[in-house]
Design a protein around this nucleic acid. Sequence first.
DNA 1: CCGCGGGCCTGAGAGC
DNA 2: TGCTCTCAGGCCCGCG
Length: 293
Amino acid sequence: MPELPEVETVRRGLQPAMEGATIVRAETRRKDLRFPFQKDFVARLEGQTVIGLGRRAKYLLADLGSGDVLLMHLGMSGSFRVVEGVDSTTPGDFHYPRNEDRAHDHVMFQMSSGAAVVFNDPRRFGYMKVIARKGLDDEPLLKGLGPEPLGNEFDAAMLSRSCWNKKTSLKAALLDQRVVAGLGNIYVCEALFRSHLSPRRLAATLATKKGEPTDHAGRLVEAIHGVLNQAIKAGGSSLRDHRQTSGELGYFQHSFQVYDREGEKCQTPKCKGTVKRFTQNGRSTFWCPTCQK
DNA sequence: CCGCGGGCCTGAGAGC
DNA sequence: TGCTCTCAGGCCCGCG
């Protein structure tokens, strides 16, 4: 599910409930998500104050008073819900309406703010891990990540530099978290459409033979900035699973121009093309062959 | 080292 | 209605 805008939306939703509050009680309702929970997972969380809640690529990072960091990934179907005004002291009792489906609520944090933070993940591709803050730079999950697409260091020069020797398509390069960290299938399709670049184009064509950025690279960076910022403003995209922590849907899916719009007329002014779909590296690519070159 | 395809899970929706 | 098949916002791993 979640790409950078969805994760950022979740972070902003969790912030008021978690930042400055203490994790009074932590509970896991099964022994694993994508990976088994660490044996000391709960022990390292309980009693700890959340100093700050940050994001790196599609990871959420909660800074704890102990010097640990709680790392959280939503996988494909993970979501968080904040239930206000709850003081859940009974194990297994997550205190929400009894008629709600609780089958996939896997983790709960009872915060001293009086909010319960509940992690739900039907497919269980998500995961959580507690690591020492000083080991953050060596953490394998984070180590290979490329630049933040909305960060200062991500620009046309940087993008073309990491693409000039790639043997693969532009689509695959943008999905590669080592090139830029936080994009997924939706926003790659949308950014390529906005910059009129073909997903089939060789990634290396973002650079000249001398390694200078072509104007394609500049257009693409602008498109990535634009689509991510707009999606964050809209609270992300809700196709199946994504929810804001309030339970509200995001609404950027209504602004998709190509993703999930196979067969529709291309929205580029004056373009007579139709949105097509094909499979690239095992994933659906949506694009307009008429105006994306 | 790089790029690709398989696999991990469950659920929704299409087609029969 | 109910079965079977395909597909889904991600990413690790093993192969060539």
